[in-house]
Nucleic acid binder design. Structure first.
Length: 588
RNA sequence: CGGGGUGUAGCUUAGCCUGGUAGAGCGCCUGGUUUGGGACCAGGAGGUCGCGAGUUCGAAUCUCGCCGCCCCGACCA
């Protein structure tokens, strides 16, 4: 039981200017956090209480899913990362620490880095300590602070530089067992989000930097989210746009039959799809081939799409390069023989095909018959281009960005799109890491195998804000019971009356005995201020004790989610309070 | 990092274009009146106008540089 007057809950009437979205404003206004710098926040007592409840629920559910808690260092020796498989990709987000000590030796190369995640650390541990099939499976997790130099921190805790995350790592003897671990974690995640009372849906996801074989993200639908989710209610399909597939290209599509001879024509000054689609050329965008040049691990490769399609860069991950980027015009011309705008992959037109790491085409180009593409000669294009007859393609794949409205693979219905916030991610990693660092175990036949890994993350501090984003109204936060900083707020309107405070403490004790966390507003403030603050900080159950009510012999009970106020006779107050608490606990 | 914006009291901000005593609301302190949905009256404290140069008799205001923050893009839990 805490007394407001002796606690620390700095609420604000107005939102700070740098907060844009409701949850961010409420984080500040309701006295949950304060900003120290960009993406760096102090958790005030109220915010910390929510965080502790979140971590405890998370801990319970992950343990139920087979997790074993440990704690790894936040600061890592630089050599843990430098030269490792993910270093080229992850170095940009890592904070470096120069090391402490002798000022004369500075500056120098960083000796330490702040951990953005812990795969490298945990595999090192497992390599040393887990060597037999008898030691497996293991699922190690921790809940702690991560550091990532987000290029643009924003939306308060949504994208911070320092944030709290649950990260788990599973180790199994084979793929089948790894899959079991994966689904155990998926169930744990579902249980976690259900207990918070937030809607989080799992969607197919790109494996990104992790480079695993299969992964799903847990998304909270919200307009301010950074990700697009494409989904079909009829079939249940849901995927991050980075990964999404559609039924646009039928599996058994026959190749369009050529109906004309390949023909070169002059297109002076025409370097865009749109310009070529306009008169006098009038080659519709969906009848053009778009040729993009990328650099994968230092070597150029080509991506061929329909003119109307966009490349989904995340899908380049399937090509196996560690780092990819668009090529510069200077890099393009010597290879292709032309500047961007006149590029193509028609057989025999590429100036230096030997320089290419490959020519990858999206399946959708097979929808194009008698198309138009660049001639690899500035100012010239080719028409009547047909995929099988005319184009050089190393391999077909899925590279295009799926748009809303395209048919779902299963149901054929139009895919819908909505924004989401990623709050969790689960991966089957396979043996990518263990192989690289030689994390092997010995089986009962004395054979050595790499351990099969999975890795899992939940953004706890991000989830905290997502709970607010999903649970608030014009007056303030509406906490779900499970994570509310306090469950019961007793507003004593006349704290100078000893009988009012005595009653508050008595009822507070009763509520505590029933298992609720209790806050008593004993401040010498006017009732309006107290009610406004009560709504703002969003405590689920409000109990009002006033001099007026005491004279009538009643107290009031009100849920944050409702406008109704129940007047309870004093004699029944304790029983009613206990019943309300029990009711809320049963629902939570 | 690229593009755009912004920086004035703890918070929200006016003033800047057109240079001349730095203003308001909220919050805070004192006293009084109030007391069931962010009260009222009176008095008070609180500012290197982000930092540094420059122009000028004179700069919050004009110029240049730097820094912080915010928004759009790429990245992520």
């Amino acid at each position: 039981m805490k007394l407001w007057s002796q606690y620390f809950i700095p609420t604000l009437k107005e939102s700070p200017a740098d907060a844009e979205i409701p949850s961010h404003k409420l984080l500040i206004r309701a006295g949950l956090v304060r900003k120290l710098g960009g993406g760096l926040y102090t958790f005030l007592p109220l915010g910390l209480r929510v965080m502790q409840k979140l971590t405890q629920i998370c801990r319970e559910e992950i343990e139920r899913g087979g997790g074993i808690e440990l704690l790894m260092p936040h600061m890592h020796p630089a050599e843990t990362w430098v030269g490792g498989p993910r270093w080229p990709v992850i170095r940009d987000v890592m904070f470096r620490a120069d090391g402490a000590g002798d000022a004369k030796r500075l500056p120098r190369e960083p000796e330490y880095v702040l951990g953005p995640t812990h795969e490298e650390v945990v595999t090192q541990l497992v390599k040393a300590e887990i060597t037999s099939y008898r030691d497996l499976p293991k699922n190690l997790f921790q809940i702690g602070t991560k550091f990532r130099n987000e290029i643009r921190p924003r939306y308060g805790l949504m994208r911070a530089r320092e944030f709290v995350m649950m990260d788990a790592y599973s180790f199994d003897t084979n793929n089948e067992n790894a899959t079991k671990s994966y689904f155990a974690m998926k169930r744990a995640y579902q249980a976690f989000f259900k207990r918070l009372g937030v809607l989080a849906i799992s969607v197919e996801a790109d494996t990104g930097v992790m480079g695993g074989s299969f992964s799903e993200e847990f998304m909270i639908p919200a307009d301010i989210g950074d990700d697009d989710i494409l989904y079909c209610e009829a079939s249940g399909y849901a995927a991050n746009r980075e990964k999404a597939r559609s039924g646009l290209v039928p599996e058994n599509l026959a190749d369009a039959s050529p109906s004309g001879a390949l023909e070169e024509f002059a297109t002076p000054g025409i370097v865009t799809i749109a310009a070529l689609a306009a008169p006098p050329y009038s080659a519709p965008a969906d009848k053009q081939f778009k040729t993009l040049v990328y650099i994968g691990d230092g070597k150029p490769f080509l991506i061929v799409l329909r003119g109307c399609d966009e490349l989904e860069e995340a899908k380049l991950g399937s090509l196996g390069f560690a780092v990819t980027r668009p090529a510069t015009p200077e890099e393009i011309e010597p290879v292709m023989g032309a500047k961007p705008g006149s590029l193509g992959t028609v057989k025999g037109t590429i100036k230096n095909p030997a320089a290419l790491a490959g020519i990858y085409a999206d399946h959708a180009i097979r929808l194009v018959g008698n198309g138009t593409t660049g001639a690899n000669k500035d100012g010239f294009h080719l028409r009547n281009v047909n995929v099988v007859r005319d184009l050089t393609v190393t391999k077909f794949g899925d590279f295009r960005r799926v748009q809303a409205g395209e048919p779902d693979v299963k149901s054929g219905r139009p895919l819908q799109v909505r924004r989401g916030i990623e709050v969790g991610h689960i991966f089957v990693l396979g043996t990518k890491f263990s192989d690289k660092i030689n994390a092997y175990y010995t089986d009962d036949q004395k054979q050595n195998h790499p351990v099969v890994m999975g890795c899992y993350g939940i953004g706890i501090s991000r989830t905290l804000q997502a709970v607010i984003e999903q649970g608030h109204d014009a007056d303030g936060v509406i906490w779900p019971w499970a994570v509310a900083p306090f469950h019961v707020l007793i507003c004593v309107l006349d704290p100078q009356l000893p009988e009012a405070m005595d009653l508050a403490k008595k009822l507070g004790t009763a509520a505590e005995q029933a298992g609720a966390d209790v806050l008593i507003d004993d401040r010498a403030e006017r009732p309006g201020v107290k009610f406004k603050d009560a709504d703002l900080i969003g405590i689920p159950l409000r109990l009002t004790i006033g001099g007026k009510g005491l004279k009538e012999g009643i107290i009031e009970l009100k849920w944050r989610t409702s406008k109704d106020v129940a007047k309870i006779p004093l004699a029944e107050a304790e029983a009613a309070l206990r019943a309300a608490v029990a009711e809320a606990q049963a629902k939570a």
